[in-house]
Design a protein around this nucleic acid. Structure first.
Length: 422
RNA sequence: GUGGGCGUAGCUCAGCCGGUCAGAGCGCCAGACUGUGGAUCUGGAGGUCGUGGGUUCGAAGCCCAUCGCCCACCCCA
């Protein structure tokens, strides 16, 4: 039986990897511009981090985590990270980054893992680009993080993305929100779906984004979270909106936007591809002023986002941003007769001189070697033949023009370097 | 967890109601007067027809099971 890759994972082959590389380059460059430092945290963490950070009542924790027992006598429970914010918050705490000048701005790119049924744009191992700001409670920080995300898509030439915005309040006003919602839904809970009946107890806010038709209908007259915000949260939200206006970032107010993770406070946003069907969210984020404290630190405000790279790549397929096919070697060295020793040395010389050089490794005929060089898209072919070698020369063929000349061995590298413009 | 579709060479697929049905194109390898590419021609390698049962004189095509992939639901990235 042949072994195949685990469900929901993928092999990124060279051609595809070039698209990833391009995407990652944009990310690194953009983050440098915005003053974010890269952070790389472990692929797995202590399970507790997510239980406490993400929240026990979330879908992620309830059914999507890859959790396993470590080895050893006092083995603890580990989990393949399902998201990036909690780990980064943990690292911020653990490494004492709160002692750095605040705020601290960090970004990451890497794989995340969630056990779920795969389908278009959804995988068990997927990749996110995320950015976080710790130690800034100013709504301008929220705005910057949103601007960074939106600029990223703009740089990629992706159009038509929508920013959806909401505020989910803080420990101050959240209870009020809860109470009003519970009060409202309690009257008609019998008409709601089973999930929402559970939500009413565990997390009433989430009833607001239930996709069931019946629930949609019922919540029509439901109180809106934004109307329940305390003065501080209300002001924060107002200021954020003003900053977004200043930055010319359009947004849709979406009172039903409630993110799936428990740690969010105040700002919550999502970036949507209109009409993309079920997987229409390319990214999302918000403020999480309680997170650092929740995982055992002092109270540090935070705000950030995460974007799905697979979904971004999917968008880039039908639209701008296609990458050219991989260029072939600048020089391909071919042998005619017993000249392999010389050829071996020449390839090394060419590479040492910074030329993209390759050769044949199968011992095939000259004709076959030429054919191979042609398929690779080699710009020049150096033919190391016994006859030429006797005169201290090699033949040099321009594969585009189809012309061929001879050069002395000593001059070959310089000649080719000039030819390819290096 | 639920529902639907599909599984024939590396890839894209033919193969009608069971009886030259194990094929084509592309790709790969090689050859076409002996040391030269991309065009053309010729040849070659490569398949337990996802797997296991069953029906039948006979199954890639029918039945059952199983696995895998894809799509959709829930939820998210």
């Amino acid at each position: 039986m042949q072994i195949s890759r685990p469900r929901g994972t993928s092999d990124i082959l060279p051609e595809e990897a070039r698209r990833w590389r391009k995407l990652e380059n944009v990310i690194h460059e953009l983050c440098r511009l915005y003053g974010y430092g890269e952070i790389r945290t472990p692929i797995f963490e202590t399970t507790d981090l997510f239980l406490r950070g993400v929240g026990e009542a979330t879908d992620i924790v309830e059914k999507e985590m890859y959790t396993f027992k470590s080895k050893g006598k006092r083995a603890n429970s580990l989990t393949l990270r399902p998201e990036g914010t909690a780990p980064v918050a943990r690292a911020y705490l653990e490494n004492g980054l709160y002692a750095l000048p605040q705020p601290v701005k960090l970004y990451y790119i890497g794989p995340m893992f969630r056990y779920d049924r795969p389908q278009a744009g959804r995988y068990r191992q997927f990749h996110q680009f995320g950015a976080e700001i710790f130690g800034a409670d100013d709504p301008a920080a929220d705005a910057e993080v949103i601007a960074l995300a939106m600029t990223f898509f703009k740089k990629l030439g992706l159009k038509g993305l929508e920013l959806h915005l909401n505020s989910v309040g803080c420990p101050e006003c959240r209870p009020v929100m809860r109470e009003k919602l519970v009060e409202y839904f309690n009257l008609r809970i019998q008409e709601c779906c089973q999930d929402c009946r559970n939500r009413l107890v565990k997390n009433p806010l989430r009833i607001l984004d239930c996709k069931e038709d019946s629930c949609r209908e019922i919540r029509r007259g439901a109180p809106s979270p934004v109307d329940c915000l305390c003065t501080e949260c209300g002001a924060h939200f107002e200021h954020l909106r003003r900053y977004l206006d200043l930055l010319n970032i359009p947004y849709h107010l979406n009172p039903r936007l409630v993110r799936g993770l428990d740690y969010y406070t105040k700002t919550a946003f999502e970036i949507i591809i209109p009409g993309a069907g079920a997987q229409d969210a390319v990214g999302g984020g918000g403020r999480y002023d309680g997170l650092v404290q929740e995982i055992g630190g002092r109270s540090v405000p935070g705000v950030g986002f995460a974007l799905g790279l697979e979904r971004t790549l999917l968008l880039m397929l039908d639209g701008a941003g296609e990458v050219a096919t991989a260029p072939g070697p600048e020089v391909f060295v071919v042998t005619a007769g017993e000249t392999r020793d010389t050829a071996t040395r020449l390839v090394a010389d060419l590479r040492a001189a910074g030329l993209v050089a390759d050769r044949d490794y199968t011992g095939r005929s000259l004709k076959a070697q030429m054919k191979y060089a042609g398929k690779l898209g080699a710009r020049y072919v150096v033919i190391v033949g016994e006859d030429e070698l006797r005169g201290g020369r090699v033949a040099l063929k321009d594969m585009e023009a189809g012309r061929q000349t001879e050069v002395y061995l000593e001059e070959m590298v310089d000649f080719l370097r000039r030819a390819v413009g290096k």
